[in-house]
């Protein structure tokens, strides 16, 4: 019975990870603006890899492999948002289409500048 519970939880985390990867892949090809595409692909690296690593760790049990897996997943979750942040900074500083897609705060209202 305990084996099936462990299998179920592991499969649940793996399904979440696979859904994150599929939505990131679809978003990278179908979205229009570059910041939207970055928002989609950042999801793949953090949520996707984290969920699949947790699922593999639960399926493997208490072993030395689990420690290595969690450590590599932690390194990935730590560094991937930094790379997305740098790309978004570059786009913010040098992008031409920023004003068409982003709303800014004018006084008390958020509105899209022309």
């Amino acid at each position: 019975m305990a084996e099936w519970v462990r299998f179920g939880i592991s499969a649940l985390f793996a399904a979440v990870g696979i859904f994150a990867f599929i939505s990131a892949a679809v978003g990278a090809f179908r979205l229009d603006y570059v910041l939207s595409r970055m928002h989609a692909t950042a999801l793949a690296d953090t949520v996707g890899i984290g969920a699949i690593a947790i699922s593999a760790a639960i399926a493997a049990g208490v072993d030395f492999v689990t420690l290595k897996l969690l450590f590599s997943a932690a390194a990935m979750v730590l560094t991937s948002p930094v790379s997305t942040h740098m790309l978004a900074e570059l786009e913010y500083r040098t992008g031409d289409e920023l004003y068409k897609h982003v709303k800014f705060k004018v006084g008390k209202k958020w509105e899209r500048l022309k």
Partner: peptide, 23 residues
Amino acid sequence: DVVFRDLSHDAILRRTVRAIVPL
């Protein structure tokens, strides 16, 4: 825009790299 493209003084990047690069 080469001055604006120089992103090497970003605080988040420096803290993360300082923690990760020796490893």
